[in-house]
Structures are given as C-alpha cells and as structure tokens.
C-alpha cells in the first residue's frame, strides 16, 4: 500500500479520542455559526420593526385623513393571498389544483401560504 504521508498505526484509544474530539469540533463550529445567524437575524428584525414603526408614525401624523391602502379583494371562498417565488400564476394554479385533487379536498378548504420552485438539479 502506498502511503503519502508518514502515518503510524493509531491506537484504538487515540482513534476514539480523535473521533469524539472531531465530533465536538463540528458541533461547536456549527453552534457558534448558529449564534451568529441568530444575532444577524435579530439585527435585521429590529431594523425592519423600526422602519415599520416609522412609516406608521409618519402616516398617522402627516396624513390622518388619508385612506388606508386597501388590499386587492379576494375571490369568494378564498383563504387569502399567496406568495409566489419564481412561479408564474398559471403554474401556481395548476400546482394548487393538483394538490387539491391528490388530497381529495375542495380547493377552498386549503390555505396555500407560498409556492416556490425547487429546481430539480439543485445538488
């Protein structure tokens, strides 16, 4: 067997310690990354909340008589609006119809929150 690096046979005890230590390193690394992501999310959430509050305060003080923006009316029996990500309306309608058919449920009993295209070649 050709060896590239001078390697010695490891003792089973050393292998056990290395395995446990390695698992801890992976866990610790991803745990710290998780904390960083939570901090980042918290910063962005607070910024978004502040921006929303500012907008509300401005609209209340500057234009008290302004008519609130009315969201587009929903169809009779509809459960509300749906968010589409990279999906045309026609395809979204087909997806919802297929799901309703497969579940043997009327379409107006289902509440779709969002539809997002997951590319099949995403590896």
């Amino acid at each position: 067997m050709t060896m590239i690096f001078p390697a010695e046979k490891m003792s089973i005890a050393d292998a056990g310690i290395t395995a446990i230590f390695g698992y801890i390193v992976v866990f610790a690394g991803l745990l710290i990354l998780m904390v960083l992501l939570y901090v980042m999310a918290a910063i962005f959430k607070s910024k978004a909340n502040k921006a929303a509050k500012n907008v509300q305060v401005e609209s209340n003080s500057n234009a008290p008589a302004a008519v609130k923006a009315v969201s587009a009316p929903t169809a009779p029996g509809s459960a509300g609006h749906i968010k589409l990500f990279d999906v045309p309306d026609k395809e979204a309608a087909m997806v919802m119809a297929v799901i309703a058919y497969n579940m043997q449920r009327p379409l107006n009993e289902l509440h779709f929150i969002s539809i997002k295209e997951v590319k099949s070649d995403e590896v």
Partner: peptide
Amino acid sequence: LLLGAAAQMGVFLAFFGAVCLGFEG
C-alpha cells in the same frame, strides 16, 4: 445547523471502525 452537525456522527464512527479494522489513521 445543529441537525447538520449531528448528522456527521457516522463520519467519526466509521473513522473509529476503520482504525479498529487495521486501517492507518
């Protein structure tokens, strides 16, 4: 991320198993 970390268990168990079977580190 914790689930991604937990799922590396097999990496280290197989490493340990391979040493037990006589492979170099």
